[in-house]
Structures are given as structure tokens and as C-alpha cells.
Amino acid sequence: MRKVLAVLCTCALAVLLIYVVTLLPAMGDPDNPTNSNVVPRYLEQGEQEAGTRNIVAGVVFNYRGYDTMGEVAIFSAALAGIFAVLGAGRRKIGRAFIDESRVKFSFVSGTAVVLVMPLIILFSIYVIFYGTDSPGGGFQGGAAIGAGVMLFTAAFGFCRAQERIPHHVRIILESTAIGGFFLVGTAGVIGGANFLTYAIPSLSAQSQTALRAAMLLILQFGIGIKVGVICTSILFALLREEETDGVEHAC
């Protein structure tokens, strides 16, 4: 019964959606509304107005920076939500099933991870800082950092990974992005422009470009750190075993 209903629902949905597809403007046509409205300005003046050669970064951080602020807030909220669900406890000690794995710690994998880790971090820093001019940016770089921590945890276990990045440090770093947005936005307001304007109009015109670059850098860096740390925190929160017997397990 349930299956029949599900099939019927899905079929109805499919028919509706395919029907819409046949009505949509042809894909890739330069005359499409998507290519003729709004966007030409981004493409033509984006570099000059937003100060980034990567137009996507220009849209993400400048034209639609407010969306990005919301997005960053969503990421923080998701982490807070995970803590809310799984328990926030600032317990110094936690253990995870990977620490109790019967597979012995492998010297080869450990060494490999130790060798690769600096490269991952370096690469992610490159991605973060060079994101304004090439594909990349804070989110991508942050995700790379998170992947690095994941690798480390897989190799060395939860306890040792947790020791490296203490809880309170993570908590502080998590707020960098929103704090950055707030500061950059307020700087614009104090200067006499609107919130999230990457400029202080009351300063001289020459310094504007440098200022804008500095602000972008602050944001990119803040987001990069934050995304990396939140990925880490989510990983740790999901890994932490519930202490059912009430005994604290040392590492």
C-alpha cells in the first residue's frame, strides 16, 4: 500500500517536473534571461567593483556577502545543534571506538600522515588566500583543513587528535567568521556607508583598494579557520562515545 502510494506520488512529481523541463529556456543559450539580466554587470565590472578576479568570490563576498554571513551562521548553528543533541560537555576526556580498535597502530600510516599533514595545511592556506583570484576561498580551504584533521584522527585516534586542538580553543575560533562579518560590516557603517560595504568612504580614495583587500583577507581567513574548526568539532562530537557506565575513561 505504502509502496504503491510512494510510486504514485513520485510519478506525479516526475511528470510535473519533466513537464516543466520541456518549458524551460534552452540550456546554455546566451540569450537566456539568466545570462542577460543582472549577470553582465558582475562579469564586466566585477573585478573593478569587488576587487576580485574570481567573480564567484566577488559575488559570494561582496555582492551577496549577506548571504554568506547567513551561511556561516548556519554552519555555526549546525555545530551548536549537534552539541545540543549529543551533549556539549566540556569533558577533557572522551573516547571513541577507533581508540579501541584491535588493528594495531601502523607505523607506516602514521609516518605518512605526519608527512602529508603540513602539505595539507599549506595547501589549504594557499586555497584560502588565493581564493580571490583563482578557484578557491575560505570554505574550500577550511574543508581541506577539516579533511586533514580527519586523516590525523583516523591514523592516531580520537584521544590524541583531541589533545592537539583543545575544546576552548575551538570554541573561540568558531566565532571568527561571524565576528569578522560583524566587524567589517560595522566598519562600513562607521565610515558612513551601508552594512557590509567593503570600504570606509570617509577615508581617502587611494587607501580604499588596500582597505578592501585587507577586509576581504580578514573574512577569507576567518571563514577558513572557522570552517576547518567546525568540521573538526563536528567530527569529534560525532565520535565521542556516550559514557554509559559512568566511569571516565582515560586515553
Binding site: 554571513m69 555555526s76 576552548h168 560583524f182 560590516g185
Partner: peptide, 24 residues
Amino acid sequence: YQHFAIYAIVTPLFVAVLIPIIAL
């Protein structure tokens, strides 16, 4: 007054990330 709306929205957001830090 034009900035009121954005600060009404952003202030709670900012304080929300401050709270876990201060709670330490």
C-alpha cells in the same frame, strides 16, 4: 535609522557566537 534594521538582525547573531566563548 536606516541601519536599525540590519543591526536588529545582526546583533543577536553576533551575541550568539559570543555566548559560548563567554560561557567558558
